[in-house]
C-alpha cells in the first residue's frame, strides 16, 4: 500500500524518486561534539560526482533533485514537456535557484520538498513562498521525515500531498488533517484570518 496522501485520501504514488548514489565521500561535519543535523542555507546537497553518477529511469514519472535536473536539462526536455519530471528540493536550498531554472514554474506538475528531520520548520515557509510568492499551482508534496503531527501545518502552508514516512501508517495520519476546524490566522489554504472568515461579533 502506498503511503501517499493526496487531496485528503490515500492514493498510489506514480512518481519514482531519484536519489543520487552515495559515493562514500560525504563529509560528516561536527560542531561542539555533535554531528551537524541541519544543513545551513545554500550548501550543496550533492557533489558533482554524485550528480554525474545518478541513474535516471528511462520511462515514467520521475522526481529529480534540482541539481540533477540542472545537469540534464537537454536530455530530459521532451520528458519535461510530457509532464514526466517533478523537482525535489531540500529545505536548505534557496528557492530563487529553483525559480530561476524555469521560465514558468507551473511547467512542473510536481514540486516536492524534502525534510530530513521533522523539526525543520523551514518547510512551512518554503510551502508558503512557493504558493504565494512564486505562484506555484500544481502538486506540492512533502517527503522525507513526514509525520502525521505536522500534517495540519503542512496543509495550511500550501502542501497538497504528503508521503508519510514508510514506517508509519498513512491511513492513521489522515485524521490529523482535520485536527482543527476553524484556525485563527490566515495562511495559505485559507488566506483569511478567522475574524474575516466568520462573524465573531
Amino acid at each position: 500500500m502506498s503511503n501517499l496522501i493526496k487531496d485528503n485520501a490515500l492514493v498510489a504514488d506514480e512518481w519514482t524518486r531519484v536519489i543520487p548514489p552515495s559515493l562514500g565521500d560525504e563529509v560528516v561535519k561536527k560542531q561542539a561534539g555533535k554531528v551537524v543535523l541541519f544543513k545551513l542555507t545554500g550548501e550543496p546537497t550533492y557533489s558533482p560526482a554524485q550528480i554525474a553518477a545518478t541513474q535516471i529511469p528511462a520511462t515514467g514519472k520521475v522526481l529529480l533533485p534540482l541539481t540533477v535536473w540542472q545537469a540534464n536539462v537537454e536530455q530530459l526536455a521532451s520528458r519535461m514537456a510530457a509532464g514526466e519530471i517533478g523537482i525535489l528540493i531540500a529545505t536548505h536550498e534557496p528557492l530563487d535557484s529553483l525559480a530561476a531554472t524555469f521560465a514558468d514554474i507551473n511547467e512542473l506538475p510536481l514540486i516536492a520538498v524534502f525534510v530530513e528531520r521533522f523539526p525543520d520548520g523551514r518547510i512551512f515557509t518554503i510551502g508558503n513562498l512557493l504558493r504565494t510568492r512564486y505562484g506555484f499551482k500544481n502538486e506540492l508534496r512533502a517527503v522525507g521525515d513526514v509525520l502525521r503531527d505536522q500534517l495540519f501545518f503542512l496543509k495550511r502552508s500550501g502542501f497538497s500531498s504528503y508521503l508519510i514516512r514508510a514506517d508509519r501508517s498513512a491511513e492513521d495520519a489522515l485524521a490529523s488533517l482535520k485536527d482543527f476546524s476553524q484556525p485563527y490566522q490566515g495562511a495559505v489554504d485559507d488566506a483569511l484570518p478567522v475574524w474575516r472568515r466568520v462573524d465573531r461579533a
Binding site: 521533522f118 523539526p119 525543520d120 520548520g121 512551512f124 515557509t125 508558503n128 505536522q150 495540519f152 501545518f153 503542512l154 496543509k155 495550511r156 502552508s157 482543527f180 484556525p183 485563527y184 490566522q185 495562511a187 495559505v188 484570518p193 478567522v194
Partner: peptide, 14 residues
C-alpha cells in the same frame, strides 16, 4: 495570542 496560536508557518522555529 490568537494569531500566534498554531501559526502553521511558525510551528517549528529554530
Amino acid at each position: 495570542r490568537q494569531w500566534s496560536t498554531f501559526h502553521p508557518e511558525f510551528a517549528l522555529l529554530p
